[in-house]
Design a protein around this nucleic acid. Structure first.
Length: 564
RNA sequence: CGGGGCGUAGCGCAGUCUGGUUAGCGCACCUGCCUUGGGAGCAGGGGGCCGGAGGUUCGAAUCCUCUCGCCCCGACCA
């Protein structure tokens, strides 16, 4: 392919709206252009990258026996009403009406439609298992599109769905997907982790996410370098930091105007670790008192799993419910005995100081389970370097991009949509489902985040728009053109895809664009080296160049670009 | 949805606080010369509804009101 025949609008300067490295380089490299918030145009180079990624995905999905489909993006409301998601999902769903005033929506995902089809076409245990997938457009009216193509309102997703007769079958389909995902992301040249994740509103039992480390990511995971424990921080657990209990008598102490753990800690000469931090939360049904150790932070998602949706109590509500100002509340001697107490497991043993439920007073020597009763849960935010619950090694917290996820759905969709089969005994059984996603554009973005330098992108060969770029430095030089022709012909005969920069411009610009667009290998043809019958091969990643005759160069490059 | 920032040529920005010639700079673009191994040089040139609407004023890119858009933080992310 000739450079002059492709639109590759590279930019010397960084566009002001871009912040993430992948976003900046995709715009500067002439890969994407923005149409509106969360809506991007794929230029020819980016389309090639996406095709490479999608090809890898197809190969690996087909390999585990999945079949490719194509589903409509415009859906009738009824199907979504049957599963309850028409009402459960809010503004994030694009909704519209057709000319007959029928409610419609744009696809956010395809559980409903896939299950609708399964309900229609799958009848017998003999039809199972099935794995169906597509690489299809999804639309979500995101509250906040961000970071270029990492979070957009319209995007391509590989989504697949498994249909099994029983749990055992589901486990197998799930495991096959996990294996396929490992192969896909490895082939795409990514560093990634498979982590335990919160099934959340997908409503399943088990879920994992595939996470690519990058500062541009929106999620955080905890990983153990020794035993391999890895989990989204939303549910990651750890051993709380060591705490040697301080011995103190059970007594009330005067602490005038001391409201924060910090203030009281300094005033009483006790470390923050020997304090109980009390927070009043308001749920739909009743107030809840949450207890943490003085150095801990409440994990919103973790406590939400215990008490449901909640919000922190307002100042006047605290006085109203507990009869004392915030800052002096605590689990002992509460005037309201009905309040449920949820406490962090880290304070189950030891002696602590906490609010006395009396203005300007705290209690020392509080002995949990002696002085108060509570439901014990892991409700703390874990921190870097805390110890792994499995092996005791230090945990690392890492920012990541979610590139894929796998969910065990069970019968959440098959039951409302009547996707059932008849077993050997003739009984009608709901199909057990799983759902699995990959964001190909996120794979591309993660690849850039993980593979770039100050000059631009460094694509892994497997997903590069072209594996090889030929740079004839002077298009006015006959010898250069001749050498380029020889190389092109040799590459063609080997069926190696390549881009040749045939533009009649200064060499400096060719070099800059070459590095920016990130094609992994460059064959540089310059008049000076050509006098010795040589061209150069440059490895974009190492910046190393090797000189050799043109015919050898093709041979050499063809070995470099072999990918699994 | 809450908080913050920004809209001036294709891109990056100055000018706005403190209203006043014809709105400016760099890059890009066009013409010519020159140059050809890391975004050259010289000369000439084209390109603007200063996001939009309303207002204040003799006079508005600049002040006021409303509005639209984009980015960042947070909430949200089935």
């Amino acid at each position: 392919m000739q450079y002059s025949k492709l639109l590759i609008p590279t930019l010397k300067e960084t566009p002001s709206e871009a912040e993430a490295v992948s976003h900046i380089l995709m715009i500067r490299g002439g890969y994407i252009r923005q149409l509106a918030a969360g809506l991007y145009i794929s230029l020819p180079l980016f389309l090639r990258v996406m095709e490479k990624i999608n090809t890898i995905i197809r190969q690996e999905m087909n390999r585990i026996g999945a079949q490719e489909f194509s589903m409509p993006v415009l859906h009738p409301a009824e199907v979504w009403q049957k599963t309850g998601r028409w009402d459960a999902i809010g503004d994030e769903m694009f909704r519209l009406k057709d000319r007959t005033d029928r409610d419609m929506c744009l696809a956010m995902t395809h559980e409903e439609i896939m299950t609708w089809l399964a309900a229609k076409e799958l009848r017998s245990y003999r039809d199972l298992p099935q794995m169906w997938y597509q690489i299809q457009t999804k639309l979500r009216d995101e509250a906040r599109p961000k970071s270029g193509i990492l979070r957009t309102r319209e995007f391509i997703m590989k989504d697949s769905y498994s249909f099994d007769a029983d749990e055992e079958g589901l486990n197998k389909s799930y495991e096959l997907h996990a294996q396929a995902y490992h192969r896909i992301f490895t082939r795409a040249g990514l560093l990634f982790y498979q982590v335990e994740s919160d099934p959340g509103m997908m409503g399943g039992t088990t879920a994992h996410e595939f996470m690519a480390p990058s500062d541009a990511g929106e999620d955080e995971i905890a990983i153990c370098g020794r035993c391999g424990y890895a989990a989204n921080v939303e549910l990651a657990v750890s051993v709380p930091p060591d705490y040697a209990p301080v011995d103190m008598p059970f007594e009330e102490v005067h602490t005038p105007r001391m409201k924060t753990v910090d203030e009281v800690s300094r005033f009483l000469g006790l470390p923050p670790l020997s304090f109980i931090k009390s927070l009043l939360l308001i749920t739909k049904d009743a107030p809840v008192l949450a207890l943490l150790r003085g150095d801990e932070e409440l994990h919103e998602k973790k406590i939400q799993r215990v008490i449901g949706p909640y919000r922190p109590a307002h100042k006047d509500e605290i006085v109203e419910i507990l009869g004392v100002e915030a800052g002096f509340i605590g689990p002992v001697n509460m005037i309201n005995k009905e309040i449920r107490i949820i406490a962090s497991t880290s304070i189950k043993t030891g002696l602590y100081a906490g609010g006395a439920n009396k203005t300007d007073y705290h209690l020392k020597g509080i002995n949990p389970e002696v002085h108060f009763q509570a439901d014990w849960h892991d409700i703390r935010v874990i921190r870097q370097d805390e110890r792994c619950v499995r092996c005791g090694a230090a945990l690392k917290i890492q920012r990541v991009i979610e590139i894929g996820n796998i969910f065990k759905l069970g019968t959440k969709y098959s039951v409302p949509l009547s996707a059932v089969y008849l077993n050997k005994e003739g009984a009608e059984i709901p199909i057990i489902m799983g759902s699995y996603g990959i964001g190909p554009a996120r794979v591309a973005a993660a690849a850039i985040e993980q593979n770039h330098d100050e000059n631009g992108i460094i694509w892994p060969v497997s997903i590069a728009p072209f594996p090889v770029l030929i740079l004839p430095l002077s298009t006015g030089d006959n010898e250069t053109i001749k050498a380029a022709d020889v190389i092109c012909a040799a590459l063609n005969s080997r069926h190696i895809d390549f881009l040749i920069d045939d533009r009649d411009i200064r060499p400096g610009i060719k070099f800059k664009d070459a590095d920016l667009t990130g094609i992994p290998y460059q064959i540089i043809i310059g008049a000076k080296n050509l006098k010795d019958g040589l061209v150069e091969i440059k490895d974009r990643r190492t910046k190393e160049t090797t000189k050799m005759p043109p015919d050898k160069a093709v041979e050499y490059v063809s070995r470099l670009i072999i990918v699994i």
